[in-house]
């Protein structure tokens, strides 16, 4: 479960971003919708524990992020969260398959290398990039990179998957396909899906959504 309550954040100590209170049940899906400058990415980073709120509390998978040390946050992020970034970041010197092994290596989750390999190849196959498992990330098309990064976000069985602008550079057909993949794979994994976007095309898909208004200090929960 995700519970964001009366959270505010300031980058400079003067201007404050205030976020609405909202929650999302385990295994549910939620859309965070807002235009540029509404603090979407800031809210995503707060929920991932990459930033600490000035006020309020954030509970993710039953853990109050505010009460955790930096080290505990690092561990928590590695074990419980999967993040799909707007830009597909990869460790360029490693193959796609090796990139998918990173969350497990860094979070030290006790998955055997045999099971990990099986899951990696299964995920890549399901996402249509199984044939690229031995390729370097730079040799993949933008679409393939995005699919591979979805696989990476899911490979270590996270309880929550965050997707930051997953459809921003895609046409309608590709958007439909990527969002469908994200929904299917998180549902298969029993994970909660949080999509952060400015793309109003997704609005109709999600009854459970939070709309962030253009003024950074005034935010509404629909």
């Amino acid at each position: 479960m995700i519970d964001v309550s009366d959270v505010s954040f300031s980058y400079d100590g003067v201007h404050e971003l205030r976020f609405p209170t909202f929650s999302c049940r385990n295994g549910g899906k939620l859309l965070l919708l807002g235009n540029s400058g509404t603090g979407k990415t800031t809210l995503l980073h707060l929920m991932c524990g990459l930033l600490r709120p000035t006020k309020g509390s954030i509970i993710v998978s039953g853990k109050d992020l505010g009460g955790m040390s930096d080290r505990e946050l690092d561990n928590f992020r590695g074990r419980e969260l999967g993040i799909v970034f707007q830009q597909s970041y990869f460790v360029q010197s490693l193959t796609v398959e090796e990139n998918l092994a990173l969350p497990n290596l860094l979070s030290k989750k006790p998955i055997s290398s045999k099971d990990l390999k099986k899951r990696t190849l299964e995920l890549l196959d399901r996402l249509g990039v199984g044939h690229k498992s031995k390729s370097r990330p730079k040799d993949l098309s933008v679409g393939e990179q995005q699919r591979a990064s979805i696989a990476r976000a899911l490979v270590h069985y996270p309880s929550v998957v965050f997707a930051d602008e997953p459809s921003s550079a895609l046409d309608d057909t590709s958007t439909e396909s990527v969002i469908k993949l994200l929904e299917e794979e998180t549902a298969n994994a029993g994970a909660t899906l949080i999509i952060v976007t400015h793309d109003s095309r997704l609005k109709a898909r999600y009854s459970d959504r939070v709309e962030l208004t253009t003024t950074s200090s005034s935010l509404n929960h629909v």
Partner: peptide, 18 residues
């Protein structure tokens, strides 16, 4: 050159020490 890679590794549970 690899600051995004390093930041990415942090989001995957890599500690500063790692």
């Amino acid at each position: 050159a690899r600051r995004f890679e390093l930041a990415l590794m942090r989001t995957m549970g890599g500690t500063p020490a790692t």
